[in-house]
Simulated scan of single mutants.
Amino acid sequence: MKKSSALDRAYTWVRERILDGTLPGGSYIDEATVCQATGVSRTPAREAFNRLEGERFITLVPRKGAQVRSISSTDLLDAFHARLMIEQFAATEFCVERKAIPDAMRTNLEVMNGVCDFSTTDAMLVYINADREFHAAMVQTLNNRPIFEFFESLWRNNSGAAINRGQMLRSESWLATNHAQHRKILAGLEAYDLDAVVGTLREHLR
C-alpha cells in the first residue's frame, strides 16, 4: 500500500465516523484504533490526525490521542459574522461596479440544487463543498488576496463544525430554505440589488 493511499484510508475512516456520529463531539480516538480498523501503520494514522486537526475536526491531546471537537455555537456565530462582513463588502463592490456573475456561482448553485437531502455523508460533503465554492466565487470578485485568504481560513478553521451543523440541520425544510437563499443571492447580484443581497446574506449567515 502506498503511503498516500494509506493516509487517505485512515483520514477517510476517521472523518466518516465523525460525520455519521459514531465519534461524537468530546469522544477520544487513538492511533492504535485507526491502525487496527484500517490496516495502516502508525505513520499514516498520525498524518491523518494532523490533517483532521488542521481542518478542526479533532484536537490532539498528549497521551490520549485525538478528541473530536464539540460544536461551539459561539465559534460558529463568530465565523458567520466575519463571513457576513466580507461577503457584504464583496456584494457592495459587485453591485457598485456592476460586475459580471462568476460562472462558478451558477455552476455550484446547480450542484447544490441537485442535492435533495443529507441522508448520506457523500451528499452532505458535495453540498458543503459547492456551498463554499459559491460564496468563494463572490468573494473572489474583489480581486483582493488578503481578504480572500481570510475568507478561506474561516472555512478551513471551521469546516468540521460547519459539517456537523449541516448534519444537525439535515431536514428537507432547512435544505429547501438554503436552496432558496442561494438563488436569491444570485438573483440579487444579477439585478445589482444590494439591499436584497445583503438582506438574504443576513438570513443565510446566522
Rank of each mutant, 00 (worst) to 15 (best):
S171D: 13
E149V: 05
R156V: 03
R206A: 12
R17L: 10
L169Y: 15
I29S: 01
S5D: 14
G199K: 00
R106K: 12
M112Y: 09
F57G: 03
L169H: 15
F150D: 03
V139I: 14
R206C: 12
V198R: 02
C95L: 07
E97K: 07
G65P: 02
F94G: 00
G188F: 02
L201I: 04
R46F: 07
P24M: 08
G114I: 05
A161M: 14
F150T: 04
F94Y: 12
D117C: 13
K3P: 05
L84T: 02
S70N: 12
R17N: 15
R69I: 04
A196G: 04
T12H: 14
I86G: 03
N50P: 00
R9C: 11
D8G: 10
L125N: 13
K64I: 04
H81I: 05
E172Y: 10
L7Q: 11
L60H: 09
G21S: 11
T141H: 06
I185F: 03
E203Q: 15
T59S: 14
A32G: 04
F89G: 01
L76F: 09
R165M: 14
N129G: 11
V139G: 01
Y28W: 07
L194K: 06
S72K: 13
G160D: 08
S153M: 07
K2A: 12
N144G: 02
N143G: 09
S73L: 11
G26L: 06
G39I: 01
G21W: 13
M85F: 11
L23C: 06
N143P: 06
R106P: 00
R170F: 09
